[in-house]
Design a protein around this nucleic acid. Structure first.
Length: 213
DNA sequence: CCATTAATAGGCG
DNA sequence: CGCCTATTAATGG
């Protein structure tokens, strides 16, 4: 058991699977490819018929509009997987995935993975739960975008981080430009609303460090 | 270091 | 609030 097994075990999605299933996963996954900061891990229409797992590092999943503006769909961190939706349907239009820092990435071919799914109820359940969680997150973001103004979207995001990290003081995991893209606002609006929030004594900002008051 | 990118500021619709 | 432009700050090679 070297880094290959860790690569899969590290992901919450696979961590609690029986040992033999993990071992099978190993045989169908490619192991720890290195992507330097800024490298494209996947791009649309590329022949990428696999799921990716971020072993170490982080990446952004995004699309670009005609005018070149990019919209971040979500951020992947260590242990996160992307692309499992294509397990059930082959869609040609993939998103861009770009590493945000030097990262190590594993991948699994759909066909292989599907075969394994049929033999492991535990793995199937694991995938279902992952789908559920992802759906909840997407719905929540969607509601926020529709119902909250920029300032409250920002605070809602900070609230998430607070809950996730258990701290009221934390570093933003991404650049403010990218945060703006995630929240569906412009960097200028983010900058301005942060100032408003500071003046309202609701937060304190030092570079990427956020302190909730 | 310098060059590029990110962040902020101000004006306007 | 988004878009545009100007200026400054941060980054990374």
């Amino acid at each position: 058991m070297h880094s290959e097994l860790k690569c899969i075990s590290r992901s919450p999605l696979f961590a609690n699977l029986p040992q033999r299933v993990k071992e099978r996963l190993l045989t169908i996954s490619s192991h720890r490819e290195f992507y330097p900061r800024g490298a494209l891990i996947q791009q649309p229409l590329a022949d990428a018929d696999g799921m990716v797992i971020i072993d170490e590092g982080s990446a952004k999943v995004y699309n670009v509009a005609e005018d070149g503006r990019e919209k971040i769909i979500y951020i992947l961190n260590s242990g996160d997987i992307e692309g499992q939706q294509h397990l059930f349907k082959h869609i040609k239009n993939y998103n861009f995935i770009q590493s945000l820092e030097d990262s190590w990435v594993c991948s699994i071919k759909y066909a292989d993975f599907q075969g394994l799914l049929q033999h492991s109820p535990a793995l199937s359940l694991s995938i279902l739960n992952n789908f559920g969680n992802q759906l909840i997150e997407i719905e929540r973001n969607s509601v926020r975008r529709d119902l909250l103004d920029a300032k409250n979207r920002i605070m809602a995001y900070f609230g998430d981080l607070q809950q996730l990290l258990g701290k009221t003081k934390f570093l933003l995991p991404i650049k403010k430009k990218e945060l703006a893209s995630m929240l569906g606002i412009t960097p200028e609006t983010l900058s301005r609303q942060l100032h408003v929030l500071i003046q309202e004594k609701r937060i304190k900002v030092t570079g990427r460090e956020i302190q909730l008051l």
